[in-house]
Each structure stands twice: as structure tokens, then as C-alpha cells.
Amino acid sequence: MLYLHIEPDQQQWLDAFAHHQPDLKVVTADDDFDADRVRWVAAWNPSEGLFGHFPNLEAVFALGAGVDAFVRRDDLSAEIPLIRLLDAGMADQMVEYILWATLTVQRDFDLYADLQRQNKWQEHTARSRDQMRLGILGLGALGQQVAKSLTTYGYPVSGWKRSEIELEGVKVFTGDQGLQQLVQQSDVLISLLPNTPQTRGLLDAKLLGKLPKGAALVNVARGVQVVDADLLKLLDNDHLRFAALDVFHEEPLPTDHPFWQHPKVAVTPHMAAATLPEPAVKQVVANLKKLEAGQEPEGLVKAESGY
């Protein structure tokens, strides 16, 4: 039996499970069921103490790429396999969000919006795609898909990963020195990094200050990676041109936060890449079959790395 814990649009998920695995018994908090019979839990933003209700739990599925809400919990043993989604329609949405942010700077749409508010008719010289160097921090499964997709639009794309990999059409930097090199040559810096002790506060004045003057930041990873005060200072002194922020230290973003009214910041409510039920359920069902066959599921979270 699988327990499903997600809101809203719960029925879409139930319908998808019924379609892809009709013999799987799926229950929710609205149902009357025996908790002892629950073998798996599929959840997004699980409530406090949720997993403690199921004494025979064999695995947990995180219905998203991030697993912040699942690790280091008192009610979930590290011995229970935790499995995250690898894409589920998120890569295409991430590419769309990054393209929007990149085009905002490339075609000066932010500047034209400001001119409109001033009733000014003034044309700017546009830049071509090959003049916009995109740097991606984080080349995991999702980051690799995003990087390869962006190259098809004609943008020069580089990426950074702690371990070495080869990625067709993408220049890959590794290590601390590689991080500095990537940042120094990025007109748009995009964070797709996981949330780890090493990445928290990584995007501070020291690192962001190495971006070329007039560069932009896109954060679609985790808000805790950015030192807000440092970013604001770099925007205010015109070192950075624009920031598209989809994630924050506190969500929802407090109404008095300076990001809301800053003319160089675009705030979006953690919507850059929503999990789509159909592809997500197909991944969960495929991994359930792997578990039943004694095989390692795809997206298994490694305890040592936290992702």
C-alpha cells in the first residue's frame, strides 16, 4: 500500500497512479486505512511526524528534485531508502525560466520596462545569443538536461560540478579554482545546486563580485545559497544588472523584504519548475518495480551527500 501526501491537486495524482499502476492500492489522509499495511510513502513537503505513523515503511518517494524536507528528520530513519525525482517535466520548465531571465538582459526588457514608466521612447542595441555566456552551477541530472537544452538555442553554456564529467557542447569546470573561473566568465549565472552545508551562503559578495560588471543572477535552487544583503549591495552599486529569484530563505517571502520593491529584482513564488503528476508517477511506479525486484531505484538519495 502506498500513502500519498500532497496538496493541492491530489486527485490528479490519484488518477495518474490508477492509470499507470491500477493494481496499486493508494491511500490519502482522507481514507480509512490500516497504517501497518503502508509500505511506501510518496510526499511533497511532508508534515511533522508524518513518517512515524507507518511502522512498516520500506521506502519514501520525494515528489520533487529537492529533498530538504526529508533529510535529518526524527521520524524518518536514515536506513529507509529515500528516492527523489530526476526530472518529471521540470527540466523543460527550468529552461523556459532561464531563457526568460536571459532574454530580459539580452534584449534589455528590464530597461524598456523602466523607460515605459518614464514615458520615454529610447531604443537600445540588442546583443546576439553568442554574446551571452551562461554559467550553470550544479550539473546533476536536472542541471545536465538544462545545460544541454540551452546549448540548442545557440548560447555558449558552461557548467560547474565538484566531480569531473563530460557533457557534449558544455564546458565543464570543477573544483574551487574552476568555480572562480566559471563565475568570472558568466554573463548570466544560474544556480541549480543542491542544498548542502557547502552550498549554503555560497553566493556571497566574494563570489558574486567576481561576475563581470552588468551580469545577472538566476537562482532556481535554494534561497539559503544567496547572502541577500550582499546581492542587494551588488545590485545597488550597479555591479550586477538583474536578479531573477524563485527561491528564498523564508517562503513565502516576507512582505517587508527589500527584494519585493527592488527595481532590479524579479521575484517569483517558487514556480520555476513544478512537478507534473504524469511523468512523476511514471518514475515512482518504475522505481517501485525496481524495489520489488531487489534492484537499486533511480534517484536514490545518498546519505553522505544529502542528494
Rank of each mutant, 00 (worst) to 15 (best):
F61L: 11
R73E: 12
L139W: 04
V67W: 03
L115Y: 08
I136M: 02
M90F: 07
D34A: 11
S77N: 06
R129S: 07
R133W: 04
R72C: 10
A126H: 12
F51M: 09
P46N: 00
H53F: 12
L115F: 13
P46A: 03
R72G: 11
L63W: 05
L99M: 12
N45D: 03
V67M: 04
A78D: 03
M94G: 04
E58M: 03
D75H: 05
N119Q: 14
R133E: 15
Y112D: 08
M90E: 02
Q144P: 13
N119P: 04
G140D: 01
L134R: 04
G52D: 07
V60W: 02
N45P: 02
L115R: 09
H53S: 14
D92I: 11
L134K: 05
F70T: 00
I80R: 03
W44Q: 01
D74I: 13
G66D: 06
H53V: 12
T102V: 12
L82Y: 02
L82W: 09
G52A: 13
M90D: 00
R73D: 11
L115E: 15
I83W: 07
P46F: 02
F51T: 00
G143L: 03
G52L: 09
G140L: 00
R117W: 14
L115T: 12
D108G: 07
R37F: 11
Q93R: 07
D74V: 15
T125N: 07
T104P: 06
S128G: 13
A42P: 11
D74N: 15
S77R: 12
E48G: 06
Q93D: 05
L82G: 00
M132H: 00
A69V: 08
A69H: 07
A62L: 12
Q145F: 03
A35E: 11
R117S: 15
W100Q: 06
L111P: 00
G140F: 04
Q145W: 01
D92L: 12
D68Y: 10
L50S: 03
L99Q: 09
V67F: 05
N56L: 04
A69L: 08
V67I: 08
A42V: 10
G64D: 07
L137T: 01
R129C: 07
F54M: 06
A69R: 09
V95P: 01
A91E: 06
N119F: 14
G66I: 12
M132C: 06
A126C: 05
V60N: 00
Q106F: 06
D130C: 08
R73M: 12
R117Y: 11
V95A: 08
Q131Y: 06
Q116H: 10
D110T: 13
